[in-house]
Simulated scan of single mutants.
Amino acid sequence: MRRRTGLAMAGATALVWGEWLNWRWSRSLVGSCGGATEAVVVLGYRNPRSTANFVNRWRVRAGIRSVCADGGKGTLVIFSGGATGSYGAEAQLMADYANSVLGFDGPVLLEDQSATTWENITNVIPLLEDVDRIKIVSQPAHALKARAYLRRQRPDLAEKLVRADDYRPGEWMIGKPLLASYGLWTLRGLKAEERKVAP
Protein backbone atom coordinates (compact mmCIF):
# COMPACT_ATOMS: atom_id res chain seq x y z
CA MET A 1 0.00 0.00 0.00
CA ARG A 2 2.76 2.43 0.96
CA ARG A 3 4.65 1.58 -2.19
CA ARG A 4 1.62 2.31 -4.36
CA THR A 5 1.00 5.57 -2.52
CA GLY A 6 4.65 6.54 -2.94
CA LEU A 7 4.55 5.77 -6.66
CA ALA A 8 1.32 7.73 -7.07
CA MET A 9 2.82 10.72 -5.26
CA ALA A 10 6.02 10.52 -7.34
CA GLY A 11 3.95 10.37 -10.53
CA ALA A 12 1.82 13.35 -9.47
CA THR A 13 4.95 15.31 -8.55
CA ALA A 14 6.49 14.58 -11.95
CA LEU A 15 3.34 15.75 -13.73
CA VAL A 16 3.20 18.99 -11.72
CA TRP A 17 6.93 19.59 -12.29
CA GLY A 18 6.59 19.04 -16.04
CA GLU A 19 3.55 21.31 -16.23
CA TRP A 20 5.27 24.06 -14.24
CA LEU A 21 8.46 24.02 -16.30
CA ASN A 22 6.58 24.13 -19.61
CA TRP A 23 4.41 26.97 -18.29
CA ARG A 24 7.52 28.87 -17.21
CA TRP A 25 9.30 28.40 -20.54
CA SER A 26 6.24 29.61 -22.45
CA ARG A 27 6.47 32.92 -20.59
CA SER A 28 10.21 33.52 -20.91
CA LEU A 29 11.67 36.19 -23.22
CA VAL A 30 8.29 37.57 -24.22
CA GLY A 31 6.73 40.97 -23.70
CA SER A 32 3.41 42.68 -24.33
CA CYS A 33 4.20 44.58 -27.50
CA GLY A 34 1.21 46.06 -29.34
CA GLY A 35 0.66 46.80 -33.00
CA ALA A 36 -1.48 45.98 -35.98
CA THR A 37 0.73 43.39 -37.67
CA GLU A 38 2.30 40.20 -36.44
CA ALA A 39 4.14 37.14 -37.64
CA VAL A 40 3.51 33.66 -36.25
CA VAL A 41 6.61 31.53 -36.90
CA VAL A 42 5.93 27.79 -36.72
CA LEU A 43 9.10 25.73 -36.37
CA GLY A 44 9.28 22.33 -38.03
CA TYR A 45 10.34 19.01 -36.56
CA ARG A 46 12.17 16.13 -38.28
CA ASN A 47 9.74 14.85 -40.91
CA PRO A 48 11.15 12.12 -43.19
CA ARG A 49 7.79 11.24 -44.73
CA SER A 50 5.34 12.62 -47.27
CA THR A 51 2.84 14.09 -44.81
CA ALA A 52 3.21 16.13 -41.64
CA ASN A 53 4.04 13.92 -38.66
CA PHE A 54 2.32 14.04 -35.27
CA VAL A 55 4.62 16.71 -33.81
CA ASN A 56 4.38 18.97 -36.85
CA ARG A 57 0.60 18.59 -36.97
CA TRP A 58 0.40 19.71 -33.34
CA ARG A 59 2.73 22.65 -34.02
CA VAL A 60 0.59 23.75 -36.96
CA ARG A 61 -2.55 23.61 -34.82
CA ALA A 62 -0.81 25.64 -32.10
CA GLY A 63 0.31 28.13 -34.74
CA ILE A 64 -3.20 28.52 -36.16
CA ARG A 65 -4.74 28.97 -32.74
CA SER A 66 -2.05 31.60 -32.01
CA VAL A 67 -3.45 33.51 -35.00
CA CYS A 68 -7.03 33.01 -33.90
CA ALA A 69 -6.26 34.19 -30.38
CA ASP A 70 -6.05 37.77 -31.67
CA GLY A 71 -8.56 37.58 -34.47
CA GLY A 72 -5.91 37.02 -37.13
CA LYS A 73 -6.10 40.47 -38.71
CA GLY A 74 -2.73 41.55 -40.04
CA THR A 75 -1.15 38.21 -39.17
CA LEU A 76 1.31 36.37 -41.39
CA VAL A 77 2.08 32.71 -40.70
CA ILE A 78 5.61 31.58 -41.49
CA PHE A 79 6.33 27.85 -41.63
CA SER A 80 10.03 27.20 -41.16
CA GLY A 81 11.93 23.98 -41.84
CA GLY A 82 13.93 22.38 -44.62
CA ALA A 83 13.86 18.86 -46.01
CA THR A 84 14.94 16.03 -43.70
CA GLY A 85 14.13 13.23 -46.12
CA SER A 86 13.18 12.76 -49.74
CA TYR A 87 9.61 14.02 -49.32
CA GLY A 88 10.10 17.78 -49.33
CA ALA A 89 10.59 20.53 -46.81
CA GLU A 90 8.95 20.53 -43.39
CA ALA A 91 7.66 24.03 -44.13
CA GLN A 92 5.72 22.82 -47.18
CA LEU A 93 4.32 19.78 -45.38
CA MET A 94 3.09 21.97 -42.53
CA ALA A 95 1.57 24.50 -44.92
CA ASP A 96 -0.22 21.70 -46.78
CA TYR A 97 -1.63 20.38 -43.50
CA ALA A 98 -2.77 23.86 -42.43
CA ASN A 99 -4.56 24.39 -45.72
CA SER A 100 -5.97 20.97 -46.60
CA VAL A 101 -6.83 19.65 -43.14
CA LEU A 102 -7.36 22.74 -40.97
CA GLY A 103 -8.79 24.90 -43.75
CA PHE A 104 -6.47 27.80 -42.96
CA ASP A 105 -6.53 30.30 -45.82
CA GLY A 106 -4.66 33.22 -44.29
CA PRO A 107 -1.39 34.65 -45.60
CA VAL A 108 1.48 32.15 -45.44
CA LEU A 109 5.19 32.28 -46.22
CA LEU A 110 7.56 29.32 -46.36
CA GLU A 111 11.15 29.23 -45.15
CA ASP A 112 12.33 25.87 -46.50
CA GLN A 113 16.12 25.87 -46.14
CA SER A 114 16.71 25.47 -42.39
CA ALA A 115 18.19 22.36 -40.84
CA THR A 116 18.68 23.66 -37.27
CA THR A 117 16.90 26.00 -34.86
CA TRP A 118 19.65 28.60 -35.31
CA GLU A 119 19.10 28.46 -39.08
CA ASN A 120 15.32 28.71 -38.59
CA ILE A 121 15.83 32.04 -36.89
CA THR A 122 18.55 33.28 -39.24
CA ASN A 123 16.41 32.53 -42.28
CA VAL A 124 13.14 34.02 -41.01
CA ILE A 125 14.68 37.30 -39.86
CA PRO A 126 14.22 39.00 -43.27
CA LEU A 127 10.51 38.11 -43.05
CA LEU A 128 10.12 39.72 -39.61
CA GLU A 129 11.54 43.18 -40.24
CA ASP A 130 8.23 44.98 -40.80
CA VAL A 131 5.88 43.35 -38.28
CA ASP A 132 4.92 44.80 -34.91
CA ARG A 133 4.77 41.54 -32.98
CA ILE A 134 6.43 38.14 -33.31
CA LYS A 135 5.18 34.79 -31.98
CA ILE A 136 7.37 31.69 -32.19
CA VAL A 137 5.49 28.39 -32.00
CA SER A 138 6.87 25.02 -30.92
CA GLN A 139 6.98 22.97 -27.73
CA PRO A 140 7.74 25.53 -24.96
CA ALA A 141 11.41 24.63 -24.44
CA HIS A 142 12.14 24.68 -28.17
CA ALA A 143 10.26 27.95 -28.65
CA LEU A 144 12.26 29.50 -25.79
CA LYS A 145 15.50 28.37 -27.40
CA ALA A 146 14.41 29.98 -30.68
CA ARG A 147 13.48 33.23 -28.90
CA ALA A 148 16.91 33.25 -27.24
CA TYR A 149 18.52 32.80 -30.66
CA LEU A 150 16.53 35.73 -32.05
CA ARG A 151 17.66 37.81 -29.10
CA ARG A 152 21.30 36.89 -29.83
CA GLN A 153 21.03 37.56 -33.56
CA ARG A 154 18.70 40.56 -33.57
CA PRO A 155 17.97 42.07 -30.15
CA ASP A 156 15.87 44.79 -31.79
CA LEU A 157 13.48 42.22 -33.26
CA ALA A 158 13.46 40.25 -30.00
CA GLU A 159 11.80 43.29 -28.40
CA LYS A 160 8.74 42.41 -30.49
CA LEU A 161 8.34 38.89 -29.09
CA VAL A 162 4.99 38.06 -27.50
CA ARG A 163 3.47 34.81 -26.25
CA ALA A 164 2.13 32.27 -28.69
CA ASP A 165 -0.68 29.89 -27.80
CA ASP A 166 1.62 26.86 -27.67
CA TYR A 167 1.15 26.14 -23.97
CA ARG A 168 -2.16 25.07 -22.48
CA PRO A 169 -2.60 23.53 -19.03
CA GLY A 170 -3.12 19.79 -19.28
CA GLU A 171 -2.18 19.52 -22.95
CA TRP A 172 0.49 16.83 -23.48
CA MET A 173 0.25 16.36 -19.70
CA ILE A 174 1.46 12.76 -19.56
CA GLY A 175 4.40 13.63 -21.81
CA LYS A 176 5.33 16.90 -20.11
CA PRO A 177 7.76 15.37 -17.56
CA LEU A 178 9.68 13.84 -20.46
CA LEU A 179 9.47 17.08 -22.46
CA ALA A 180 10.67 18.97 -19.37
CA SER A 181 13.65 16.64 -18.89
CA TYR A 182 14.61 16.91 -22.55
CA GLY A 183 14.02 20.67 -22.44
CA LEU A 184 16.42 21.10 -19.52
CA TRP A 185 19.08 19.31 -21.54
CA THR A 186 18.50 21.34 -24.72
CA LEU A 187 18.38 24.64 -22.82
CA ARG A 188 21.56 24.06 -20.82
CA GLY A 189 23.44 26.62 -22.95
CA LEU A 190 21.04 29.49 -22.21
CA LYS A 191 22.10 32.26 -19.87
CA ALA A 192 20.12 33.18 -16.76
CA GLU A 193 18.74 36.33 -18.38
CA GLU A 194 17.49 34.24 -21.29
CA ARG A 195 15.28 32.23 -18.93
CA LYS A 196 13.64 35.26 -17.34
CA VAL A 197 9.88 34.96 -17.06
CA ALA A 198 7.82 37.91 -18.32
CA PRO A 199 5.92 39.77 -15.60
Rank of each mutant, 00 (worst) to 15 (best):
Y97R: 02
G183M: 10
K191F: 04
R133P: 09
C33V: 14
V101Y: 08
S28R: 01
V77E: 05
L150Y: 00
P126F: 02
A141E: 13
D156T: 00
G6R: 08
W58E: 06
S28M: 00
D70G: 06
G18S: 04
N120C: 04
S100L: 10
D156A: 05
N120S: 05
A141P: 13
R195Y: 15
L93G: 02
E90A: 09
D70L: 12
R188K: 09
D156G: 01
W58S: 05
C33N: 14
A180C: 13
D166K: 09
M173D: 11
D132L: 03
S181P: 01
V60Y: 11
A141T: 10
E171M: 11
A10L: 05
L93P: 03
A158Y: 00
D105Y: 10
R163P: 06
L144G: 03
W118M: 08
L109H: 12
W25Y: 05
T84N: 06
E159D: 15
W23A: 08
L144N: 03
R154C: 03
E38N: 04
R147S: 03
E90C: 01
G82E: 01
T5P: 10
V40H: 09
K196H: 15
K135H: 00
N47C: 07
W118K: 03
R163E: 07
R49P: 15
V41G: 12
F104M: 06
G106T: 03
L157M: 07
D96G: 12
E159F: 14
S50Q: 07
T122N: 04
E129Y: 00
L128D: 03
W118I: 14
G81P: 06
W17M: 12
R195G: 15
L93C: 06
L184N: 06
A164K: 01
A52Y: 10
T13I: 04
K196E: 12
A12G: 12
E171F: 09
V41S: 10
N120D: 02
I78V: 14
R49V: 15
I174C: 07
C68A: 13
P126M: 01
G103V: 13
S86R: 03
G85D: 04
F79T: 11
M9F: 13
L93I: 02
A158H: 10
L157T: 11
I174P: 08
M9W: 13
K145T: 05
Q113T: 12
L93K: 03
S26W: 10
V40M: 05
L93W: 10
V30N: 11
G11W: 06
G85Q: 03
K73Q: 12
A164I: 02
V101R: 06
G71C: 14
Q113I: 10
S26G: 02
R49A: 15
T75G: 00
E171C: 15
Y45I: 10
R61I: 05
D112Q: 07
L127R: 11
G63P: 06
M9S: 15
D112C: 01
G71F: 07
D105W: 09
A83L: 00
T37D: 05
G31F: 07
L179Y: 08
R195F: 08
V16F: 04
S32C: 14
V42G: 10
I125Q: 08
G44C: 09
K73M: 01
K191R: 11
R61L: 06
